[in-house]
Every structure is written in C-alpha cells, then in structure tokens.
Simulated assay, not measured.
Amino acid sequence: MGTIVVAPLEKIAELAVRHGCREMLSLVAPKQDFHRPAVIDASRHLILGVNDIAFAATGDLVAPGEEHVAAIIGFAAGWNRASPLLVHCMMGVSRSPAAALIAALAVHPDQDERALAARLRRASPQATPNARLVEIGDRLLCRGGRLVAAVREIGRGADYAGDSPFSFPALPEDSRP
C-alpha cells in the first residue's frame, strides 16, 4: 500500500509528525540549508540537489538528470510503506509531485499512468510536475511515453496560491489488497 505526502520545505517537520512519516525524499537547490525532522532517520533520507528547471543546466543551476531519477527509484524501492513517504521541494509544486509520481510507479509498476496522474491532480489542483523529471522517470521506468502523456493530459496546475501540502495513495483504492 503506502501513502505519499507532498510538501513545501517549510511544512516538512509539521507534516512528518502529523502523518507519522519515517522516510523522506528532499529535492532542493544544491547547498540548500534545512533541518531534517527528528522523526526521519538519516539512513532513510535522500537529499537530491537539483534546481526546478526543465532544461539542460547552465551556470550554477543543476538540472535533474538520470542519476537523480535513478536515485528516486532506488530510494522508493526501499520504502517499506508501513508509514507514509514524505516528498518535498521548496514549494511542493513541481519537483516533489514529479518525484511522487516516479516513486508511486517504482513501488507499484502495474498501475495505469493516467489514473495515477488523475489521483495527483485530485489531491493537488496546483501541482505541476517537473517535465524533465517526468520524462526521465518515464524512460527509466520503461513507461513508453505513457507517464509523459498522462502528465500532459492533466495539464499545468492552478496558479500558486500558497503552501498546499497534499497526500495521495501510491496505489489506487480499488487495487489494494
């Protein structure tokens, strides 16, 4: 089973405690300074230093790459799903929703991409998954373009209206054991 909680950076401690999260995936700008919530074990915290860009990086920016997405997939594969997985970025709108989709497919590869993207949209009207992360995730998870198409189908999220953390099941309700 498993629930994925998606949050902005400033809400991670509150949400980790409220949801009982024990594992966390952080997608933050390189050298971003923040404190891991005490309820998250350091051994189950993956920090990826990537900027929220959808193009090849220039200058000091770090674009999400295959190594970042492979790390998300590997981390998700080790998630025991006994407690929710907390995924965050700076605002909880682009990098973290994309990583949440990738994590959900990594742990439940038989699910339909369109249904997954629709669950994400119902959970968050403002989520706009990072296109570069989605594209690389689609390729590394051998989705044949279906994840990219599903995310395009839900479209850009609503304009940012402030911190709106959300959660959604990694597997659809009707597929749970």
Score class of each variant (00 low, 15 high):
4 I>M: 15
5 V>E: 02
7 A>K: 10
8 P>Y: 00
8 P>T: 03
11 K>P: 00
11 K>H: 08
12 I>D: 04
12 I>R: 10
16 A>L: 07
18 R>C: 08
19 H>D: 05
20 G>L: 14
21 C>L: 11
21 C>Q: 10
25 L>F: 09
26 S>R: 02
27 L>Y: 01
29 A>N: 09
30 P>A: 09
30 P>G: 11
31 K>C: 05
31 K>R: 13
32 Q>P: 00
32 Q>L: 09
32 Q>V: 03
32 Q>W: 01
32 Q>M: 13
38 A>R: 13
38 A>F: 13
40 I>R: 11
43 S>V: 15
44 R>E: 09
44 R>P: 01
45 H>K: 02
45 H>C: 14
46 L>R: 02
46 L>N: 03
47 I>H: 13
49 G>R: 02
50 V>Q: 04
50 V>A: 13
51 N>H: 15
54 A>T: 12
55 F>Y: 07
58 T>E: 07
62 V>G: 01
62 V>Q: 05
62 V>W: 00
63 A>R: 05
63 A>N: 01
64 P>I: 06
70 A>K: 06
70 A>R: 10
70 A>L: 06
71 A>F: 09
71 A>M: 09
72 I>F: 11
75 F>M: 06
76 A>E: 02
76 A>K: 09
76 A>M: 04
77 A>C: 05
78 G>T: 00
78 G>N: 10
79 W>F: 12
81 R>F: 08
81 R>K: 15
82 A>Q: 14
83 S>R: 10
85 L>K: 09
88 H>N: 13
90 M>E: 00
91 M>R: 07
91 M>W: 01
92 G>S: 10
92 G>M: 11
92 G>N: 11
93 V>P: 13
93 V>G: 07
95 R>F: 12
95 R>Q: 06
97 P>T: 06
97 P>Q: 05
99 A>M: 07
101 L>K: 03
103 A>K: 11
103 A>E: 02
106 A>T: 14
107 V>P: 10
109 P>N: 02
110 D>C: 11
111 Q>H: 02
112 D>R: 06
112 D>F: 04
113 E>Y: 05
113 E>K: 03
114 R>H: 13
115 A>M: 14
116 L>S: 11
117 A>E: 03
119 R>L: 14
120 L>P: 11
121 R>P: 06
121 R>A: 06
123 A>V: 05
123 A>G: 10
124 S>T: 07
126 Q>E: 08
127 A>L: 08
127 A>P: 08
130 N>D: 00
130 N>T: 08
131 A>C: 03
133 L>P: 04
135 E>Y: 08
135 E>Q: 14
136 I>D: 01
140 L>D: 07
140 L>N: 07
141 L>R: 02
141 L>H: 04
141 L>Y: 09
141 L>E: 01
145 G>C: 01
145 G>Y: 06
146 R>F: 02
147 L>E: 02
147 L>K: 08
149 A>P: 04
149 A>N: 05
149 A>E: 12
150 A>R: 03
151 V>A: 13
151 V>C: 15
154 I>R: 03
157 G>N: 09
164 S>D: 00
168 F>M: 14
169 P>E: 12
169 P>L: 11
170 A>W: 01
171 L>F: 06
173 E>P: 14
